[in-house]
Design a protein around this nucleic acid. Sequence first.
DNA 1: TCCAACATGTAACCGGTTACATGATTCA
DNA 2: TGAATCATGTAACCGGTTACATGTTGGA
Lengths: 229, 229
Amino acid sequence: MSLKHALLGFLNYGPHTGYELKKVFDISVSHFWSAELSQIYPSLKALETEGLVEMKVEVQADRPNRKVYSITDDGRRELIDWLGTPAGPDQIREPLLVKLFFAASGGRAHVLTVLRRRADDLRLRLEGYRHGLALVDRYSGAAKLDREAPFWRLTIEYGISHTEANLRFIEESMGLLDMMDETAFVSSPAEHAGMPTRERVEILDMLKKAVMAAHESGSPLIPARLHTN
Amino acid sequence: MSLKHALLGFLNYGPHTGYELKKVFDISVSHFWSAELSQIYPSLKALETEGLVEMKVEVQADRPNRKVYSITDDGRRELIDWLGTPAGPDQIREPLLVKLFFAASGGRAHVLTVLRRRADDLRLRLEGYRHGLALVDRYSGAAKLDREAPFWRLTIEYGISHTEANLRFIEESMGLLDMMDETAFVSSPAEHAGMPTRERVEILDMLKKAVMAAHESGSPLIPARLHTN
DNA sequence: TCCAACATGTAACCGGTTACATGATTCA
DNA sequence: TGAATCATGTAACCGGTTACATGTTGGA
């Protein structure tokens, strides 16, 4: 669980309503953490009963009333505490890549189409990010957030570097596919169905262990199952 | 939902048990999709009742019996069908980055320590991947998986490019932090608490819209809410 | 002797998403 | 007129994780 802590993090910058927090989420940490209003509201309520935040109703005549939340001393302590614990592992789910992996059954032309579409999408996203960077630079002074601005920039730059990596990867894949001969894309795989799957899996298992061994040879950076997130 | 389809994808390469599928998952698509045994077993059962896979018990004397699953014609149809639908959006959660974003409250030294640890971890991971690549090249012939090998390589290369991007980003961040003056890390933020949060959020909102406008200006690549995953 | 690998599962929990509900105001 | 913004929520659902349960064999 981490949304609560992220909320505390934002409230530590100043009081906000749930509605506002959603916006702040969307333009800052959204590249690596997202949240829906339907999750934010109950979380704020929970934080309140835990005494980590306080709420004041702000009556408005023209618009719906607002519930402005601010962090308490207990909340600030909890935040600092959380910042001190090691972070949990990344969780990544990319359906497109999964499909790509199985797309051999779909024919080369089809795979290439999917990849090309993705590349276009990524290029567009990049444009958006670059635009965002320029805007942050231009307006950070006006919004009196020159202190947070560098961090804000960082998150966008994170988005950029990842999108670029993705794009490069996709372009490389297209190159590879171009070089492969069409036979790799026969729509009916399982031609080696006759040979025992056991053996193949065993070799794969060996591979896995070898890779993991290399990975774990270092010091235990994040003590397993100790991450409170 | 996608695990079921991923399982179908693997079973399309040949019959497997749940236990084996877990391994295959771990060394192939694990960079962008993971699964636990406790999720795989029920999913296979569900697929069976849906008639998309068949199961045969393989009695073993020395070891526990195995339940070998194979894909049916219906299953193959379902797989092809799924491959044809547009993929859902990526889901990414990186707790470390969230912490980093709020770590300004923790002091520069602390932030740098966290970053350095992460960088070390990433470098180790890279080593592991590179090792894995070499192994795939060396053993793919022996395992009679020369047809799948290029796809296997691709997934590892995906891991590499992303890890490298991450590493670059972290190194840049450290550079930036070095250049920032210590005042940005005062442990008590909310110094601008006096100024109305409203206005700041409004400007941020403007930023967001501008970025999104740039992002959405293109063609509607993935028709919203039509992705069955 | 003790741990890892083999092999299959169940039950409880939980974070998060989707859909639904409400209602005023403002702008195109 | 109708969509978007402001503003807050509830309820159902669901995919996925953690913990627990069981029992054998082979190697360090």
